[in-house]
Simulated assay, not measured.
Amino acid sequence: MRVGLHALGIGYGARPEVIRAVATAAETHGFARLWCGEHVVLVDTPASRYPYSADGRIAVPADADWLDPLLALSFAAAATRRIELATGVLLLPEHNPVVVAKQAATLDVLSAGRFSLGVGTGWSAEEFAALGVPFAGRGRRTEEYLAAMRTLWTEDPASFAGEFTRFDAIRVNPKPLRGGRLPVVVGGNSATALRRAVALADGWYGFNVPVAEIPAHIAVLADECARHGRTLDELTIAVAPGDGSPDHLREFATAGVTELVVVGAPPPTPDGAATWVAELARTWIRLAG
């Protein structure tokens, strides 16, 4: 079982010297992948419920620095050579899919094929309103945008006509190094997100999932694979457990988790960040191995 690290882009993890230190230390100490999430907009008192905590509130303060994940991962790519990179997750329906297709392909090329695009539908109605995107229908929009992006990655010129986007005989380059099979991971813990991961993507990213619920989520993935003529081993199953410890590693592996993602906030200095990553590696990677 691989071990990834979700620690870039927020607070101290938004500082360039800390990003460089975390990325290089993670690569040195054997982490498989660096994850970076997204919010374009936060508000002080959201009415929308955050779905990944018991109290419905996001732990990140609204005034915290939160980097664009594609730009942050591009910076991390330049500081490393082997470690994989993933958005965890990019809120796809908030973006123009033609632009995201180009940005994702660019990052894949610049990282020599190390990038996976993790996408989600989003939960904050306030964020969608600020961006001028309808909150309703965001699931359909996400699915259509993925189809449009795969068209752009594989066809040249490319044409697409859908409910939310359309283009005719356009050229968008570069192409990802793996073409239309640039890995796409769907985030979200709902049954709909799990179904979408199997139907449209190459993997699932479960964030802040209680340990006791992980086997049930993976069982849903297995059932959906059977319905779509796929096998579970075709998917990457990355999970950031909400209440896990190294004592649960065997339990995660038995359930079918292929990548355990450690979530944390690095300290404010490069030396401190490097030491922090080394300690995480000793705690998680040694036991996972």
Results as ranks from 00 to 15, higher is better:
246 P>Q: 10
60 V>A: 03
193 A>P: 04
242 G>K: 05
14 A>G: 12
86 A>N: 08
77 A>V: 05
106 T>G: 08
105 A>C: 07
269 T>S: 15
205 Y>I: 01
199 A>E: 08
245 S>M: 06
220 V>Q: 15
146 L>Y: 14
35 W>G: 10
198 V>N: 04
6 H>S: 08
275 T>I: 03
279 E>P: 00
287 L>T: 08
23 A>T: 02
61 P>F: 02
143 E>T: 08
263 V>N: 11
2 R>Q: 15
87 T>D: 07
151 T>E: 12
30 G>I: 00
220 V>W: 14
224 E>R: 15
33 R>D: 02
78 A>T: 13
227 R>Y: 09
165 T>P: 04
236 T>R: 09
233 D>G: 09
233 D>P: 12
54 A>V: 08
174 P>D: 14
200 L>K: 11
120 G>R: 01
113 G>P: 07
214 I>C: 08
151 T>K: 06
208 N>P: 00
232 L>T: 07
76 A>M: 11
119 V>P: 12
71 L>W: 08
162 G>V: 13
128 F>D: 03
27 E>M: 01
152 L>E: 06
53 S>I: 00
194 L>H: 13
214 I>R: 10
41 V>L: 13
248 H>N: 15
46 P>H: 05
43 V>I: 10
47 A>T: 11
126 E>I: 01
277 V>L: 04
53 S>N: 07
276 W>N: 04
203 G>P: 02
73 L>F: 08
52 Y>T: 04
141 R>F: 12
82 R>S: 04
187 G>Y: 06
242 G>W: 03
267 P>G: 15
145 Y>D: 13
242 G>M: 07
31 F>C: 03
193 A>L: 02
137 G>C: 09
116 S>M: 11
188 G>M: 04
254 T>P: 05
91 L>R: 11
226 A>R: 09
105 A>R: 03
257 V>C: 02
165 T>S: 14
61 P>G: 06
170 I>V: 15
201 A>I: 03
5 L>V: 04
208 N>G: 05
263 V>P: 06
244 G>C: 14
220 V>T: 15
223 D>Q: 14
210 P>I: 05
171 R>I: 09
83 I>G: 05
70 L>N: 11
187 G>Q: 09
271 D>L: 05
